[in-house]
């Protein structure tokens, strides 16, 4: 179960790879976005990016680790900016090594689109630490 520790609009959660945990975390974040007046398109974008990031963390970041290994998810919501960070406990990865899934030769590959979608829907995204911590920033005014 996620353990909230709130300070104004900042939230830090520990999430395991269960639908219950993920839904609860998403629901809290989406409620916060609604309270701050983010439109439906923003909620769609943020939910998609968060889903993709969590799948990457659990499926790839935690490959070889016990399935109960949690990730840390924190976010800070202000009316003009959302900052999210997801930190897994894996060895990290280099996003430059991910193939471009939009190239004709990769179009029929069934995986490898998560990072593309995160980049497309977020205002900025960067990998920190050893490549196991992702910071995503979304600004409704900077919608692409």
């Amino acid at each position: 179960m996620p353990t909230p520790s709130r300070q104004s609009d900042a939230t830090v959660l520990t999430i395991t790879n269960s639908r219950e945990d993920i839904d609860r975390a998403e629901s809290g974040l989406l409620d916060a976005l609604t309270r701050h007046g983010y439109p439906e398109a923003a909620r769609f974008a943020v939910r998609l990016a968060l889903e993709e990031c969590l799948v990457n963390a659990f499926r790839h970041g935690h490959k070889g680790l016990p399935p109960t290994t949690p990730v840390k998810f924190s976010y800070q919501v202000a009316p003009d900016t959302l900052i999210m960070e997801i930190e897994d406990q894996g060895p990290g990865f280099n996003p430059e090594q991910v193939k471009d899934p939009t190239l004709d030769e990769n179009l029929e590959l069934p995986s490898g689109r998560g990072l593309l979608l995160m980049r497309a829907y977020m205002t900025s995204i960067e990998y920190l630490g050893r490549g196991n911590r992702v910071r995503m920033v979304y600004s409704p005014k900077a919608v692409k």
Binding site: E51, E52, E108, P110, R113, G114, L117
Partner: peptide
Amino acid sequence: DHLSSAALGTLITINN
């Protein structure tokens, strides 16, 4: 209302 890249991957597998 929502789908993920994993769902897209499944659609590609179905298409193939």
